[in-house]
Structure formats: structure tokens, C-alpha cells
Amino acid sequence: MKTTENNKTNNQEKSNTMKNIAIGVLAVCAVGLGAFALVQSSEKTELKQQLAAYEEQYGLQSAEQMESYREIEQNLASISMHEGNIRENMNLEGVEDPKARISAEIQAIEDLIAKNNQIIEDLNKKVEHKDSRLSAYKAENGKLKTRLETYKEEMTKLEALNAELADNLEKTKELNNTLERTVNNQDSTLIAKENLIAEQDQKLHRAYYLVGDHKELKEKNIVNKEGGILGIAAAKELNPKVNEEVFTEIDLRFLKRIPVYKKNAEIVTNHPSGSYKIVSEGNTIQWIEIKDPAKFWEKSKFLVVATKDSWI
């Protein structure tokens, strides 16, 4: 009987011991799980904080990128405008000194390319992942540089062309000056010849006449007479030493009437009778009409008319 009771007692003690052990293990596990949950919660909070900071930083970086992109695009638009100005000036052949204008446009483009390169370089330092837009901008800048070299070559050609045109213009001016001097000299020579011809022509057709009474003719030593009285059986001839200044000079081609306005008159010098006509009106001789100038002036270019009043 005692043995049976002892066994029951022992079994009861073992059972109590196992319960205590289980309770201890559960307590330890509960503490461990609580500590793990606490760690997990702390890490989760830290991750959330890091993510918020990253998102804030990424958002600021993205806004900065977009502003840089806009600046690059604006610079490219300005470059396009300057390129248009270059092409316009390239087409103005012969315009005086287009180099200054084209050089200014090229310099502006170079400055804008340099700005874009700097922006791209700064963005590449800040952006860790590959950005296709930055690559495209960088490629565009490379193309722009190539086009600038072409513009510079074209400007050099244009400058050479303008220099050639300026040289040709200068030569043309010199040639024009030479031609102008030649023409002026020829004009002067021609004028001199024309003046000489006119003078010779005037001399060729120059004639002189004088109407006066005997006293006047004698005083002026115009006519020599031999024997008799002037107009009555007297030989009359022009004094070879006559002074032309006392005569009236005429152009025999145009003057066809020699005015007299005396009652009586006689032509002293030698002129063919058929070449002229004495025209009277009432008792007064009005004029001597020259019917044939060539024949009238053939023997003498001097005409002396003595009026009746001089006959004594």
C-alpha cells in the first residue's frame, strides 16, 4: 500500500515540475517575441523615416532637374534663333563687313553651348541613374559644335569673297577714275577742237560793212581814190591798211540786208552787181539786199557804202 502511495506522490511531483518548466519556457518565449516585435517596430519606423527623407530629397532633386531641363531647352531655342541670324547674314553677299555680325552670333551660340554643358555636367553628378534626356542634350551640343565649325568655315569663305569684291570694287573705281580722266581729256580736246572749228568757221563766214559820208570815210582812212570826185569819175579802192575795228562785223550767212536810210548811196567796194539789190522806199534808200551772199562776198569781205551827202 505504501509503495503505491509513494509512486503517486512521485508522479505528482514530476508533473508539477514539467508544468513549471513549460511555464518558464513560455514566459521566456513571450519575452523574446515582445522584444522582437519591439525591434521590428523600431526598424519599421526608421525605414519610414528614411523613405520620407528619400522621397523629399528625390522630389527636390526632380524639381531641380526639371528646372535645369527648362534652362537647357531655353538655351537651345536661343541657339536656334542665333543660327537663323547667321544663315541670314551668310546670304548677304557683298554687304560691307558681315563678319562682325556673324562673329557675334557664333560667340553667343558658343556661350550658350558652354552653359548647357555645365548644366549637364552638374546634373550628371547629382543624378545617379542613367538619364536619357541628359544624353540627348549632350548629343545635341555635340551636333551644335559641329555646325558652328561649318558656320566658321562659311564665314571665312564669305570674308574672302567680300575681300575679293572690295578689291574688285576698288579696281573698278580706279578704272572708272581713269576712264573719267580720259573722257574729261577727250571732252577738253573735243571742246578745244569744236572751239577751233567754230572760230575758223566764224572767220570763214566773217564779213564787215561800214556806211558813212565822205568826211567820215576820209577821217577813218577807209577808201583811197584817184582822180575826179568820189562818185564822179573817181577810181575807188579799199585801203589795204584799213582798221577792222571801225567796221561792223557780221556773219555773212545770216545778215542779208545792210541798212542805209539815206537819200542816195553808192557801194564803194567791189561787189558783183548781180549779187545785190538796192531797195528804196520813196526818196530814201532803205537797205542793200544781198541776193547771193557767196558771190557778193567773193572778192571782198569788206563792204563800204558812201552816202550822197558826202559827195562834193
Rank of each mutant, 00 (worst) to 15 (best):
E281C: 03
D131G: 05
L26V: 08
D97L: 07
E226L: 05
A30I: 13
N6G: 01
L210F: 14
H271A: 08
N141C: 11
N177A: 15
L165I: 14
K308A: 14
G231Q: 06
S41Y: 09
T307A: 09
L303R: 03
E43H: 09
E67C: 01
L169C: 00
E55V: 09
T178V: 10
Q200D: 10
A35E: 08
L217W: 02
T156K: 12
I285F: 06
I285K: 14
K301V: 07
T269E: 05
L165P: 03
E46H: 11
D111Y: 05
K125Y: 03
S78C: 00
V211C: 05
L76V: 04
Q202C: 06
E93Q: 15
L161Y: 10
E249P: 05
A294G: 03
G34N: 09
A265F: 05
G24T: 09
E153M: 08
I229F: 04
I288V: 15
S80H: 06
A207G: 12
V304C: 10
I86D: 05
K263M: 05
F247H: 06
K126C: 02
R257K: 15
A108C: 01
Q186M: 08
I119D: 05
Q49H: 11
G94W: 08
V260Q: 06
P293T: 06
L179S: 02
R181K: 15
E245Q: 14
I23D: 12
W311V: 09
T172R: 14
K48P: 00
E244H: 08
S300I: 07
I106L: 14
G274T: 08
L255H: 04
S310G: 15
Y261H: 06
Q40H: 07
E55R: 11
Q118T: 13
T45M: 07
N224A: 08
H214E: 14
L204T: 12
V305T: 02
E170F: 03
N91P: 00
N195W: 02
A166N: 07
N239T: 03
E298H: 11
T150H: 12
E245Y: 01
A166H: 02
A104F: 08
A233K: 14
K138F: 08
N243A: 13
D213V: 11
G231S: 09
Y208D: 02
T189H: 03
N224L: 12
G24Q: 09
L148M: 10
D97R: 10
L217E: 02
L76K: 09
N168G: 03
G228C: 10
E159R: 04
V28M: 12
K295A: 14
Y58S: 11
K48T: 11
L169R: 11
K14N: 12
D122A: 15
A139H: 08
A306V: 08
N141H: 01
S132C: 01
M81H: 01
K301R: 15
M18H: 07
D213T: 10
K220N: 14
E249H: 01
I113Y: 00
L112A: 04
E298V: 03
L252Y: 14
L26P: 00
W297K: 04
D131W: 04
A166Q: 06
P98A: 04
S41A: 13
K44T: 11
L175G: 01
R253V: 05
K277V: 06
N195S: 13
V25G: 01
K130Q: 13
T284P: 00
E64H: 09
E73P: 00
A207V: 06
L92A: 12
